[in-house]
Amino acid sequence: MIQVLELTKRYGRTTAVDALTFTVRPGQVTGFLGANGSGKSTTMRAVLGLDAPTSGRALVDGRLYRSFPRPLHHVGALLDAGAVHGGRSARMHLRCLARTNGIGPRRVSEVLDLVGLAAVADRRVGGFSLGMRQRLGIAAALLGDPGVLLFDEPVNGLDPEGIRWIRELMRELAGEGRTVLVSSHLMSEMALTADHLVVIGRGRLITEASMAELAERFRRDVLVSTPDSVGLGAALRAVGATVSSEVDGLAVVGLSPTEIGDLAHRAGFAVHGLVQRTATLEDAYLDLTDDSTEYRAGSRR
């Protein structure tokens, strides 16, 4: 479990994270969503004890990261795939990190196998593609078989096959009861991976909800196709629905497709189509972050 409690981080006059509070629970993949520069990485660095919070706390399993004598056995993190020394082999890069936590070379070979780098394990990392470096970073995160995992934008630079692999890996890790936090600036990616979402904008919490709740919240309207738009529109308005005309028909808010169908039947209007429209999660996300942007811009002036 990861607990972020009233976390605030300022760099000079810039506030990167602003009184952020959320909890990441075990057994599910939690997506950490926000635009570039919204404070995701700063929050993750604070969880890992790399950046000292200006105020507030970030706890892993109820403890400060720095209080773990051998943290890799509790927490694994992929922060930046580029954070390697190009002159070392993949195996040696992992062995150096593993050694700090008393993890032996055999486990290093295991994780190299697990991420599909066994064949290039003894090649210099300098020649690795971004995708291979991501896999190496994931291998590093898995070294200590930790119960809590943080991945910062793990699909960057991966090819489609790699992206699917990492999605499945994250689902698998969560399925084993681990706590998995994955950041991304792409809602479409989160829609496929995450069970739960923490959305932030400009360092503030915008929403924390399950994927299903979010979809429900952004259920939009019902599109009704009918030869008599004027007549049916008036009938729907008469029972309190909000109706607007579109090229394809009427956009109706406030009634379910069933209610609309029954009403049309009783009033004798022909209905050619009845479609429940839901905002895509992408739209939902943009709506959410737009609000935060407006709010911010307003409050500053």
């Binding site: 890992l48 990261y65 930046d80 390697v84």
Partner: peptide, 18 residues
């Protein structure tokens, strides 16, 4: 400096937070 150049220092500090 070699660890700061690439950001490797962060990975190192996740292994040795003290």
């Amino acid at each position: 400096t070699g660890e700061y150049g690439s950001g490797l220092i962060r990975t190192t500090l996740t292994g040795v937070p003290s």
